[in-house]
Amino acid sequence: MNLSKQKSRNQKDSAMAGTKTNTIVTRIATYSILIIMTFLIFVPIFWMISTSLKTEAVMFDTPIELIPSDPTLESYKNLWSAYPFLTYLRNSIFVVSAATFFSVSISTIAGYGISRFKFRGRSFYMSFLLATQLFPSIMLLIPYYKTFKTLNLLDSLYGLVIVYISFTIPFCTWMMRGYFNGISRDLDQAASIDGANRIRVFRSVILPLAWPGIAATAIYAFIAGWNEYLFALVFINTTERKTVSLGIGQLIGEYRVLWNELMAAAFFALVPMVIIFIFFNRYLVDGLAAGAVKE
């Protein structure tokens, strides 16, 4: 430690002189990297939108058209007329919101418990949560199915909510634990000395500081549920209970991939996610501001 401090002191003078150019260089580097990344992200999105605006004949024509010369909304229309995508959307929003809410609530509490208390079986508990992530999920399919049949929860949106809760709890708990570990214990202790019990400390002191972590965790849980396919496929039979990911999956036929409709559906599924994400992103920023004020 001492050594490195000394070293950095020695560098101080030269650093001071070069601060201005340094900042500019850093900024140029930052923006270049971010612009390259943005480009890499938008290439497939661009191709997706471009494809969704083509007819099947144009799609398979060479030389290909990067931007369709004669764009058409046909695939979007087909999607609306042939599949009840609005119903899929409603189902997805219900299932995923409910699962996210419960999963994040339970995980936040559990994450706090692991982070703050020493109790018997604590390390076992953590390994146990971890171990649940290490088993290939395809092998969970049949036992889940049997259990849910007994509980009469097959072909039910509530059943799917439970599945998604169980899938996301381990990661969410680990993430919240990591987050709570970063919040100083002094705060708990200060509040405890004031006479507050642990639950009140948690609710009124720690929770407000934890919003960025909770928001990040919630985004994870939401996306994981939104994109889940395999269990939804096996559990849901009725068209009226299908989710968006099932709607997308059924466009991939054995004989024909309906690329343009598939891309339209993917684009369509993306929009609510982006809206929700932008909303939560503000929370991330707000959470930061709140934390800063308290400190």
Binding site: I142, Y145, K149, L154, L233, V234, N237, T239, E254
Partner: peptide, 20 residues
Amino acid sequence: IGIPSNNLPEKLTTMAIGGN
């Protein structure tokens, strides 16, 4: 019950084992 043909094995097998 529409099942994409790529997913027929897992869905049919699971349903059969589940007696459903």
